[in-house]
Deep mutational scan, measured.
Amino acid sequence: SEEWVEIALRLLELGREANINGTILNLHKEEIEELIRRLLKRI
């Protein structure tokens, strides 16, 4: 399964939302940290 691709796409999506909203992603901080942890486990 290409889970890391899904994770990377989700991170990009959150990054785009952050640019549009001008936020520092506090809302998504925990989700982002969890996604990155899952991503690093696969490398």
Rank of each mutant, 00 (worst) to 15 (best):
S1T: 10
S1P: 07
S1A: 09
E2K: 11
E3D: 11
E3M: 11
E3H: 09
W4F: 07
V5A: 04
V5C: 13
V5E: 02
E6R: 08
E6T: 06
E6Q: 10
I7W: 11
I7C: 15
L9I: 06
L9T: 03
L9F: 06
L9W: 14
L9H: 04
L9R: 09
L9Q: 02
R10Q: 04
R10D: 06
R10V: 15
R10I: 13
L11P: 00
L11R: 00
L11A: 01
L11H: 01
L11Y: 01
L11K: 00
L12V: 04
L12I: 06
E13G: 09
E13V: 07
L14A: 02
L14W: 05
L14F: 05
L14R: 01
G15M: 15
G15P: 04
G15V: 14
G15N: 03
R16T: 06
R16L: 14
R16P: 03
E17T: 11
E17I: 09
E17H: 10
E17Y: 08
E17R: 04
A18L: 12
A18E: 02
A18M: 10
N19T: 11
N19L: 15
N19F: 15
N19H: 14
N19I: 15
N19K: 07
I20H: 02
I20S: 10
I20Q: 08
I20G: 07
N21G: 11
N21F: 14
N21W: 15
N21K: 08
N21T: 03
N21P: 03
N21H: 09
G22E: 14
G22D: 10
I24M: 06
L25N: 05
L25R: 03
N26R: 04
N26E: 12
N26T: 06
N26F: 12
N26Y: 13
L27A: 13
H28M: 14
H28T: 08
H28A: 09
H28V: 11
H28C: 15
K29V: 13
E30M: 08
E30G: 07
E30V: 07
E30P: 04
E30K: 08
E31Q: 08
E31V: 10
E31R: 04
I32F: 08
I32D: 00
I32H: 00
E33R: 12
E33G: 07
E33F: 06
E33D: 10
E34M: 12
E34N: 09
E34T: 12
E34L: 09
E34F: 09
L35H: 01
L35Y: 08
L35K: 02
I36C: 09
I36N: 00
R37F: 10
R37N: 04
R37E: 03
R37I: 12
R37Q: 08
R38V: 08
R38W: 13
L39D: 00
L39P: 00
L39E: 00
L39A: 03
L39Y: 05
K41L: 05
R42V: 15
I43T: 03
I43Q: 02
I43G: 04
I43C: 15
